[in-house]
């Protein structure tokens, strides 16, 4: 790996201080190539807190695609079931989001939030802003559905659902 530990990624990372390991430290853990350090990386919250904002990639002198590496590490962490507690709400949100897309072809925001609440048991969250959102016409009560929903089912079946069975 090309990283020479200049630290520019960490210096500019908006969430570095919230991470177990800031990006450059994480790169160093990976560079050692040991299983022990790989486990540290997979079980860290760093890979889940990465927002893929790509500031690190834009500034990296060695053009290392850290965001893409994070994508890989997240998939790997799910595969090996080594999940930091911080990942739970994030994964729950993504799953709820994708459920909505799978069923309707589009994002159904109320459905997303309800599904997310069931996944996280966090029923009180966002109760404060939901009514104003509704009043301002920002929420549809019913989902918008695309016509060719079968294609959605097929896309999901052949990608993410396929990957899950393979993993099992």
């Amino acid at each position: 790996m090309r990283c020479y530990q200049c630290g520019k990624c960490t210096a500019g990372c908006v969430l570095a201080s919230d991470m177990n390991y800031p990006p450059s430290y994480l790169m160093r853990l990976l560079q050692t190539g040991t299983r022990q350090n790989m486990d540290k990386v997979l079980a860290s919250n760093s890979i889940w807190l990465c927002l893929n904002c790509e500031n690190c990639l834009g500034r990296c002198p060695m053009e290392i695609d850290i965001p893409k590496m994070m994508d890989y590490l997240r998939t790997q962490a799910i595969k090996e079931n080594k999940l930091h507690p911080d990942s739970k709400p994030i994964i729950a949100f993504h799953r709820s989001f994708l459920d909505s897309v799978r069923n309707t072809g589009r994002l159904y925001e109320i459905g997303l939030v309800l599904s997310y609440k069931f996944r996280t048991f966090n029923f009180l969250q966002d109760l404060a802003i939901a009514p104003s959102m509704y009043l301002k016409g920002k929420l549809h009560l019913l989902p918008e559905k695309i016509k060719d929903r079968r294609s959605m089912k097929r896309i999901f079946a052949q990608t993410i659902e396929n990957a899950k069975t393979v993993n099992k």
Partner: peptide, 12 residues
């Protein structure tokens, strides 16, 4: 906005 990599990547 810099960093001290010798402190494990502490932002400076």
């Amino acid at each position: 906005k810099g960093v001290d990599t010798l402190l494990g990547g502490e932002q400076v």
